[in-house]
């Protein structure tokens, strides 16, 4: 026997609808967590990534014992967390002798691991160590510019993969309309060597150039770090194909109150709110309008008459 479970309250229903697969996806949430052993550097890296992604990230601060993304069976709890928090990118930090300051960045498809990149963090400089005009500080949730520099990102397989993952991690919300006044930060990734990437976060200073396009100036605000690629795992070819599918025809929003006619062309319907004539204030108060007073007078007179009658009867 089966039973239908539906949420009792609208709030719960909306929350479930938010998690449902969508035709056009707007953004991925990031889960940031760590293993049993971390280092100070790694803690700072994870916290700062969380700060950069605030609003669309979930930070787990407890130790996680049996997460080994690259090993089979080690992804179980990771996938469970992904399902629980509705996150599809994860950043997992561990620190060991073999792989110091290790950061695993991975993506999920349908709450299963899609691909993985493992990088080591070196030369980390935190946000606090940068001195800059605080007016320039980027706001939370604004859309960043992303710049990739270096031929390594095209020639070396690992870096090519890392580029895609970094783009997914850093790109922010997918938007259709962008406010140009809200552009205030940029990420710059440079391939220094075949396995090393320099990543830094900059604020933008827009300067007048005399044309429509302002002159950009980058001010480093941090964090900045070197990422050394260690292991990586590309997605399964079948899974890749499945995940890359997009909706062919996006649903058109129905335009209300507009119809087209062969003869008349486009016809629009306009709804005018009810004219409340009765409640309208009159420009001048004519004597004839003062109804209430007249009526009150009449009433008074009537009462007096009845009183008189009463008295007479007594």
């Amino acid at each position: 026997m089966m039973k239908v479970h539906t949420p009792k309250k609208g709030k719960a229903k909306r929350a479930l609808d938010k998690r449902a697969p969508k035709l056009v996806e707007t953004g991925k949430k990031t889960l940031i967590l760590q293993g049993t052993k971390t280092s100070g550097t790694l803690n700072a890296v994870l916290t700062e990534i969380y700060h950069l992604k605030k609003g669309e990230a979930v930070r787990y601060t407890r130790k996680n014992e049996n997460i080994r993304p690259f090993e089979s069976g080690g992804e179980t709890s990771l996938e469970f967390f992904s399902l629980k928090t509705d996150c599809s990118i994860f950043v997992y930090g561990t620190h060991s002798k073999k792989r110091p300051d290790n950061l695993v960045i991975g993506r999920m498809y349908d709450h299963h691991i899609y691909d993985l990149v493992e990088v080591g963090v070196e030369n980390f400089k935190s946000m606090e160590s940068f001195n800059y005009d605080k007016k320039l500080a980027p706001r939370v949730g604004s859309k960043p510019f992303i710049a990739f520099i270096g031929e390594g990102f095209e020639n070396v397989d690992e870096l090519k993969h890392l580029k895609e993952v970094l783009l997914d991690l850093l790109k922010g919300e997918v938007v259709e309309n962008l406010n140009l006044a809200g552009l205030d930060h940029a990420y710059v990734c440079t391939a220094i060597s075949s396995n090393r990437v320099y990543l830094t976060h900059c604020a933008l200073r827009l300067k007048k150039s005399g044309t429509v396009v302002p002159r950009m100036e980058l001010v480093e605000v941090g964090p900045s770090m070197d990422l050394v690629v260690r292991r990586h795992r590309l997605p399964n070819e079948g899974l890749r194909k499945e995940a890359m599918r997009t909706a062919k025809d996006q649903p058109k929003k129905k335009i209300k109150n507009v119809s087209s006619d062969a003869v008349l062309g486009t016809i629009g319907k306009i709804y005018i709110p009810d004219q409340k004539v009765g409640e309208m204030a009159l420009p001048n108060k004519a004597k004839g309008v003062k109804r209430e007073r007249r009526e009150a007078k009449k009433k008074e007179a009537g009462e007096r008459a009845s009183k008189k009658q009463k008295e007479e009867s007594e």
Binding site: K22, L23, E25, R107, Y109, E164, D168, A243, M244, T246
Partner: peptide
Amino acid sequence: TKLPREKHLP
């Protein structure tokens, strides 16, 4: 630049 979906198509 094509990026993989988060969840399958509805």
